[in-house]
Amino acid sequence: MDPIREAMLKRSRSAKLERRGRLISLFCIGLIVVIVAGIFYFVASKGLATFFSDGVNLWDFLTHSVWSPGVKDAHGSPQVGALPMIVGSFGVTFLSAIIATPFAVGAAVFMTEISPKVGRKILQPVIELLVGIPSVVYGFIGLSVVVPFIRSIFGGTGFGILAGTFVLFVMILPTVTSMAVDALRAVPSHYRSASLALGATRWQTTWRVVLRAATPGILTGIVFGMARAFGEALAVQMVIGNAALLPNNLVSPASTLTSVLTSGIGNTVMGSLENNALWSLALLLLLMSLFFNIMIRWIGKKGELK
C-alpha cells in the first residue's frame, strides 16, 4: 500500500493543531462576547429592580428632581428623582463638547492644512500625551486649580458644572482633535487643488470644501468625545460638588450619574432600594453609551452614502 496515500487519508498533526487553535481563538472571542452580554444582563437586572420590585414609576424616575431614596414622600412612594443627575451629566457633556469642538477642529485644520510639519512634530505628540494623562490627574488639577479659580471669580464654593465642563473640555479635546485630523487627512487632495486652482484662498478652500467633505468624520469625533465626557467618573466627581440637587447655575454644586454612582455604591446595602436606585443610574449610563455608539454608526453610514 502507498504510504503517502495512507498518510493523506489519516488526520495529520497539522489538522489536529488547526482544530485546536481554531477552538482556542473561538473561545477567546466568545469570552469577550459573553462578558459584554454579562455586563448588560447584570446591570439591567439590578437596575430594573427599582421599577419592577420597588414599584418606582419610570417617568417619575426620569423627571422628578428629589433624590433621597431612603425617604418616602407624602404618598408613600420613595423619592428617586434622577433629574438632577441627568441634567448634570448632559450639562457637562454638551458644554464641554461645545467648547472643545472649535478648538479641536481648529487644531486639526492647523495640523492638516496650515502647517503639517509643526502639526506632526509638535501638536501630534502633545495630543498623544494629553490622551495619556490619567483622569484622576485631571481631577486633581481641576480641584487644585480650576475650582479655586472659579471660586475667586464667581464666589461660592467653586464646585459645579462649570468646573466639570473645564476639566472635561481638556479631557475630550485630544480625542476629538485626533479624529478630526483623521477625517481631514481622508479628504482627497485633488479637492484642495481643484478649489485652489479656481482661485479660492486657502481659508475659502478649507472652509467651503475640505471641512464640508470631512463633516461626517468630525461629527463622529465629537460624538466620541461626548461619549467619553458622559462616562467620565472620577475627574468629574472631584470637581462637581456632589450635591444631588438641580443646579441653579453653572457654579453651584451639582452631580452627574457617574459622580453619584462612585460616591454612593459603597455606602448602600445591596438589594436595598437605595442601592437598586443607583444601579438604575448605572443602567441609564449603559444605555447612553449604547446610544452614542448607535449615533456613531449612523453618522458613519450617512457619511458613506454621500
Partner: peptide, 18 residues
C-alpha cells in the same frame, strides 16, 4: 495516487506536503 484529493476525507495538510 488513486485518491480524489478534492474530497473531505483527504487531509489537505498532508496532501500539500506532496
Amino acid at each position: 495516487r488513486d485518491v480524489d484529493i478534492n474530497s473531505d476525507n483527504v487531509d489537505i495538510y498532508e496532501m500539500r506536503k506532496h
